[in-house]
Protein backbone atom coordinates (compact mmCIF):
# COMPACT_ATOMS: atom_id res chain seq x y z
CA UNK A 1 0.00 0.00 0.00
CA UNK A 2 2.72 2.48 1.04
CA UNK A 3 4.85 1.47 -1.93
CA UNK A 4 1.95 1.83 -4.39
CA UNK A 5 1.07 5.26 -2.98
CA UNK A 6 4.67 6.37 -3.33
CA UNK A 7 4.95 4.86 -6.84
CA UNK A 8 1.82 6.77 -7.91
CA UNK A 9 3.36 9.99 -6.64
CA UNK A 10 6.55 9.34 -8.62
CA UNK A 11 4.58 8.49 -11.75
CA UNK A 12 2.67 11.77 -11.52
CA UNK A 13 5.83 13.80 -10.87
CA UNK A 14 7.44 12.37 -14.01
CA UNK A 15 4.55 12.52 -16.46
CA UNK A 16 3.48 16.02 -15.36
CA UNK A 17 6.79 17.49 -16.47
CA UNK A 18 6.23 18.53 -20.11
CA UNK A 19 9.96 18.34 -20.79
CA UNK A 20 9.96 14.67 -19.78
CA UNK A 21 7.10 13.96 -22.18
CA UNK A 22 8.86 15.83 -24.97
CA UNK A 23 12.02 13.76 -24.49
CA UNK A 24 10.18 10.49 -24.06
CA UNK A 25 7.67 10.68 -26.90
CA UNK A 26 8.62 13.68 -29.02
CA UNK A 27 12.32 12.97 -29.47
CA UNK A 28 12.01 9.37 -30.79
CA UNK A 29 9.17 10.42 -33.09
CA UNK A 30 11.23 13.27 -34.56
CA UNK A 31 14.20 10.93 -35.04
CA UNK A 32 12.03 8.34 -36.75
CA UNK A 33 10.60 10.99 -39.04
CA UNK A 34 14.00 12.49 -39.95
CA UNK A 35 15.78 9.20 -40.50
CA UNK A 36 12.86 7.82 -42.51
CA UNK A 37 13.04 10.93 -44.69
CA UNK A 38 16.76 10.30 -45.24
CA UNK A 39 16.00 6.67 -46.00
CA UNK A 40 13.37 7.73 -48.56
CA UNK A 41 15.93 9.86 -50.44
CA UNK A 42 19.10 7.81 -49.93
CA UNK A 43 18.14 4.19 -49.16
CA UNK A 44 20.35 2.73 -46.39
CA UNK A 45 19.51 -0.68 -44.89
CA UNK A 46 20.44 0.70 -41.44
CA UNK A 47 17.52 3.11 -41.58
CA UNK A 48 14.86 0.70 -42.82
CA UNK A 49 11.96 0.90 -40.39
CA UNK A 50 12.14 -2.69 -39.08
CA UNK A 51 15.84 -2.10 -38.29
CA UNK A 52 15.61 1.51 -37.17
CA UNK A 53 12.52 1.44 -34.93
CA UNK A 54 13.85 -1.00 -32.27
CA UNK A 55 17.04 1.09 -32.05
CA UNK A 56 15.20 4.37 -31.68
CA UNK A 57 12.91 2.79 -29.09
CA UNK A 58 15.90 1.61 -27.02
CA UNK A 59 17.54 5.02 -27.40
CA UNK A 60 14.34 6.62 -26.07
CA UNK A 61 14.62 4.42 -22.99
CA UNK A 62 17.92 6.09 -22.03
CA UNK A 63 15.74 8.95 -20.81
CA UNK A 64 14.37 6.59 -18.14
CA UNK A 65 17.76 6.98 -16.47
CA UNK A 66 17.54 10.76 -16.59
CA UNK A 67 14.00 10.76 -15.16
CA UNK A 68 14.64 8.35 -12.32
CA UNK A 69 18.02 9.85 -11.39
CA UNK A 70 16.67 13.41 -11.42
CA UNK A 71 13.65 12.54 -9.30
CA UNK A 72 15.68 10.56 -6.74
CA UNK A 73 18.44 13.15 -6.57
CA UNK A 74 16.00 16.05 -6.11
CA UNK A 75 14.05 14.11 -3.48
CA UNK A 76 17.23 13.16 -1.67
CA UNK A 77 18.22 16.79 -1.27
CA UNK A 78 14.76 17.96 -0.23
CA UNK A 79 12.95 18.15 3.09
CA UNK A 80 10.21 16.08 1.51
CA UNK A 81 12.49 13.04 1.74
CA UNK A 82 13.26 13.87 5.39
CA UNK A 83 9.53 13.84 6.04
CA UNK A 84 9.15 10.46 4.38
CA UNK A 85 12.11 9.07 6.35
CA UNK A 86 10.18 9.84 9.56
CA UNK A 87 7.19 7.78 8.39
CA UNK A 88 6.94 3.97 8.61
CA UNK A 89 8.10 3.67 4.95
CA UNK A 90 10.71 0.94 4.50
CA UNK A 91 13.72 0.90 2.17
CA UNK A 92 11.84 -1.60 -0.07
CA UNK A 93 8.94 0.89 -0.34
CA UNK A 94 11.37 3.56 -1.54
CA UNK A 95 13.26 1.40 -4.05
CA UNK A 96 10.20 -0.27 -5.59
CA UNK A 97 8.33 3.04 -5.49
CA UNK A 98 11.01 4.62 -7.66
CA UNK A 99 11.40 1.63 -9.98
CA UNK A 100 7.90 0.38 -10.77
CA UNK A 101 6.23 3.56 -12.12
CA UNK A 102 8.90 3.82 -14.83
CA UNK A 103 8.07 0.43 -16.33
CA UNK A 104 4.62 1.41 -17.71
CA UNK A 105 6.17 4.68 -18.93
CA UNK A 106 8.84 2.66 -20.79
CA UNK A 107 6.20 0.38 -22.34
CA UNK A 108 4.18 3.43 -23.43
CA UNK A 109 7.30 4.86 -25.05
CA UNK A 110 7.83 1.63 -26.98
CA UNK A 111 4.19 1.46 -28.07
CA UNK A 112 4.33 5.10 -29.21
CA UNK A 113 7.46 4.38 -31.28
CA UNK A 114 5.86 1.39 -33.00
CA UNK A 115 2.57 3.21 -33.63
CA UNK A 116 4.44 6.08 -35.27
CA UNK A 117 6.62 3.64 -37.22
CA UNK A 118 3.44 1.89 -38.42
CA UNK A 119 2.10 5.25 -39.63
CA UNK A 120 5.39 5.65 -41.55
CA UNK A 121 4.98 2.18 -43.08
CA UNK A 122 6.32 -0.44 -40.64
CA UNK A 123 4.49 -3.71 -41.15
CA UNK A 124 2.79 -4.92 -37.97
CA UNK A 125 3.12 -8.50 -36.71
CA UNK A 126 3.04 -10.45 -33.46
CA UNK A 127 6.82 -10.00 -33.04
CA UNK A 128 6.28 -6.34 -32.39
CA UNK A 129 4.08 -7.16 -29.40
CA UNK A 130 6.79 -9.51 -28.10
CA UNK A 131 9.35 -6.78 -28.67
CA UNK A 132 7.25 -4.41 -26.52
CA UNK A 133 7.25 -7.01 -23.70
CA UNK A 134 11.03 -7.27 -23.90
CA UNK A 135 11.24 -3.56 -23.14
CA UNK A 136 10.90 -4.50 -19.46
CA UNK A 137 14.45 -5.88 -18.95
CA UNK A 138 15.89 -2.95 -20.93
CA UNK A 139 13.85 -0.50 -18.86
CA UNK A 140 15.17 -2.17 -15.68
CA UNK A 141 18.71 -1.68 -16.97
CA UNK A 142 18.21 2.06 -17.50
CA UNK A 143 16.19 2.48 -14.28
CA UNK A 144 19.02 0.71 -12.42
CA UNK A 145 21.55 3.21 -13.79
CA UNK A 146 19.15 6.00 -12.79
CA UNK A 147 18.71 4.66 -9.26
CA UNK A 148 22.47 4.38 -8.95
CA UNK A 149 23.19 7.89 -10.26
CA UNK A 150 20.32 9.41 -8.27
CA UNK A 151 21.72 7.87 -5.09
CA UNK A 152 25.17 9.40 -5.41
CA UNK A 153 24.88 12.53 -7.58
CA UNK A 154 23.16 15.87 -7.13
CA UNK A 155 20.60 16.96 -9.73
CA UNK A 156 23.12 19.14 -11.64
CA UNK A 157 25.54 16.22 -11.92
CA UNK A 158 22.65 13.98 -12.94
CA UNK A 159 21.84 16.40 -15.78
CA UNK A 160 25.43 16.22 -17.04
CA UNK A 161 26.09 12.53 -16.56
CA UNK A 162 22.70 10.99 -17.33
CA UNK A 163 21.43 13.69 -19.66
CA UNK A 164 24.53 14.23 -21.78
CA UNK A 165 27.17 11.55 -21.15
CA UNK A 166 24.96 8.47 -20.90
CA UNK A 167 22.77 9.37 -23.88
CA UNK A 168 25.93 9.85 -25.98
CA UNK A 169 27.66 6.70 -24.76
CA UNK A 170 24.46 4.75 -25.23
CA UNK A 171 23.96 6.18 -28.72
CA UNK A 172 27.55 5.69 -29.94
CA UNK A 173 28.02 2.23 -28.52
CA UNK A 174 24.65 0.74 -29.41
CA UNK A 175 24.90 0.34 -33.17
CA UNK A 176 21.72 2.35 -33.71
CA UNK A 177 23.17 5.02 -35.96
CA UNK A 178 25.98 3.13 -37.68
CA UNK A 179 27.14 -0.46 -38.04
CA UNK A 180 29.77 -1.20 -35.38
CA UNK A 181 31.59 -3.42 -37.92
CA UNK A 182 32.45 -0.26 -39.85
CA UNK A 183 34.78 0.75 -37.01
CA UNK A 184 35.55 -2.64 -35.52
CA UNK A 185 38.59 -3.23 -33.27
CA UNK A 186 38.61 -1.92 -29.69
CA UNK A 187 35.56 0.28 -30.29
CA UNK A 188 33.45 -2.72 -31.27
CA UNK A 189 34.84 -4.83 -28.41
CA UNK A 190 34.03 -2.12 -25.89
CA UNK A 191 30.54 -1.74 -27.36
CA UNK A 192 29.87 -5.48 -27.05
CA UNK A 193 31.20 -5.53 -23.49
CA UNK A 194 28.50 -3.00 -22.57
CA UNK A 195 24.76 -3.72 -22.54
CA UNK A 196 23.49 -1.04 -24.95
CA UNK A 197 24.21 -2.80 -28.23
CA UNK A 198 22.81 -6.04 -26.80
CA UNK A 199 19.55 -4.26 -25.94
CA UNK A 200 19.26 -2.96 -29.50
CA UNK A 201 20.21 -6.26 -31.13
CA UNK A 202 17.80 -8.17 -28.90
CA UNK A 203 14.92 -5.95 -30.01
CA UNK A 204 15.99 -6.17 -33.66
CA UNK A 205 16.19 -9.96 -33.42
CA UNK A 206 12.68 -10.15 -31.97
CA UNK A 207 11.17 -7.84 -34.62
CA UNK A 208 12.80 -9.84 -37.41
CA UNK A 209 11.75 -13.16 -35.81
CA UNK A 210 15.31 -14.44 -35.18
CA UNK A 211 14.48 -15.68 -31.70
CA UNK A 212 17.54 -17.93 -31.41
CA UNK A 213 19.65 -14.73 -31.23
CA UNK A 214 17.52 -13.14 -28.52
CA UNK A 215 18.63 -15.08 -25.44
CA UNK A 216 22.33 -14.24 -25.43
CA UNK A 217 21.52 -10.54 -25.73
CA UNK A 218 18.85 -10.88 -23.03
CA UNK A 219 21.44 -12.44 -20.72
CA UNK A 220 23.76 -9.48 -21.22
CA UNK A 221 20.97 -7.00 -20.54
CA UNK A 222 19.63 -8.87 -17.50
CA UNK A 223 23.14 -9.43 -16.15
CA UNK A 224 23.96 -5.73 -16.28
CA UNK A 225 20.50 -4.80 -14.96
CA UNK A 226 20.86 -7.15 -11.97
CA UNK A 227 24.32 -5.93 -11.03
CA UNK A 228 23.42 -2.26 -11.49
CA UNK A 229 20.21 -2.55 -9.48
CA UNK A 230 22.04 -4.42 -6.69
CA UNK A 231 24.74 -1.73 -6.52
CA UNK A 232 22.06 0.99 -6.72
CA UNK A 233 20.10 -0.53 -3.82
CA UNK A 234 23.28 -0.75 -1.74
CA UNK A 235 24.16 2.90 -2.45
CA UNK A 236 20.59 4.10 -1.91
CA UNK A 237 20.39 2.37 1.47
CA UNK A 238 23.80 3.72 2.41
CA UNK A 239 22.79 7.31 1.69
CA UNK A 240 19.44 6.72 3.41
CA UNK A 241 21.23 5.64 6.58
CA UNK A 242 23.66 8.54 6.28
CA UNK A 243 20.82 11.04 6.07
Amino acid sequence: MRMITFAKRNFKEIVRDPLNLAFLFGFPVVLLLLLSAIQANIPISMFELDHLTPGIMVFGLTFMTLFSATLISKDRHSSFMHRLYTTPMTSADFILGYTLPLIPIAILEGVACYIFAAILGLEWNINILISVLFIIPIALLYIGIGLLCGSILNDKQVGGICGALLTNVSAWLSGIWFDLDLIGGVFKNVAYALPFVHAVEMERAIVSGNFENVWIHLLWVLGYATVLIAVAIFLFLKQMKRQ
Binding site: F6, R9, S79, R83, T87
Partner: peptide, 25 residues
Protein backbone atom coordinates in the same frame (compact mmCIF):
# COMPACT_ATOMS: atom_id res chain seq x y z
CA UNK B 1 7.88 16.21 11.47
CA UNK B 2 7.34 19.45 9.63
CA UNK B 3 10.89 20.19 8.49
CA UNK B 4 12.60 23.56 8.21
CA UNK B 5 11.90 23.88 4.50
CA UNK B 6 8.43 23.15 3.18
CA UNK B 7 8.46 19.41 2.69
CA UNK B 8 5.86 18.96 -0.03
CA UNK B 9 5.76 17.08 -3.34
CA UNK B 10 5.88 20.03 -5.76
CA UNK B 11 4.32 18.32 -8.76
CA UNK B 12 1.24 17.18 -6.83
CA UNK B 13 -1.80 19.24 -5.92
CA UNK B 14 -2.54 20.12 -2.29
CA UNK B 15 -5.21 17.38 -2.22
CA UNK B 16 -2.82 14.84 -3.75
CA UNK B 17 -0.13 15.70 -1.19
CA UNK B 18 -2.58 15.02 1.61
CA UNK B 19 -3.73 11.82 -0.10
CA UNK B 20 -0.11 10.72 -0.43
CA UNK B 21 0.44 10.99 3.31
CA UNK B 22 -2.84 9.15 3.99
CA UNK B 23 -1.69 6.33 1.70
CA UNK B 24 1.72 6.15 3.35
CA UNK B 25 0.00 5.76 6.71
Amino acid sequence: VSPQESAVAPGLSVHENLELMCGIH
